[in-house]
């Protein structure tokens, strides 16, 4: 079962960015140092006096980023979010424009970086801000709320 990266308690975010660096390291054979290949951005809320947060894909069931992709580099993923087929990406940036929460980032090589919900970052969050759950779990929790 595919999993989803979800926010557990955003108010606990200290802005350390460990998730951001973890994302860049996620590939076993090709980990990157730095954040250019990271699909998460840690920011302050207009200055650290107002706290911090992360910007990351929320796994839309009907993702606008994939609808505006001319080469089908972004295709909807079962359970929410998208699959990124990097080879097909022309770097047109349509997806960056389309994402309302700004969770797709321009890489320096022209391509994009975004969360693919692999969950690698979750175990590096020192303060329990994010967690990785199964897609099923998300659906059942939602139903719980609706009941």
């Amino acid at each position: 079962m595919a999993g989803l990266l979800t926010i557990k308690d955003i108010e606990k975010c200290v802005g350390c960015g460990l998730c951001m660096y973890a994302c860049a390291r996620r590939k076993v054979r090709k980990p990157f140092i730095g954040h250019d290949h990271s699909g998460i951005l840690a920011v302050s809320l207009s200055g650290f006096e107002r706290g911090a947060t992360i910007i990351v894909c929320k796994a839309c069931p009907d993702p606008p980023c994939s609808q505006v992709c001319p080469t089908s580099a972004l295709i909807p993923r079962k359970g929410g979010g998208v699959v990124y087929r990097e080879k097909l990406c022309t770097g047109c940036d349509n997806c960056i424009e389309a994402c309302t929460i700004g969770a797709i980032f321009k890489r320096r090589d022209g391509k994009v970086a975004l969360c693919i919900h692999c969950g690698y970052c979750a175990s590096y969050c020192p303060h329990g801000v994010i967690e990785y759950i199964s897609t099923k779990q998300k659906v059942s929790e939602k139903q719980e709320v609706i009941k």
């Binding site: 200290v14 350390c16 840690a42 302050s44």
Partner: peptide, 8 residues
């Protein structure tokens, strides 16, 4: 509490 960048 807040953190420096890349510090847990």
């Amino acid at each position: 509490r807040i953190a420096c960048n890349h510090c847990p």
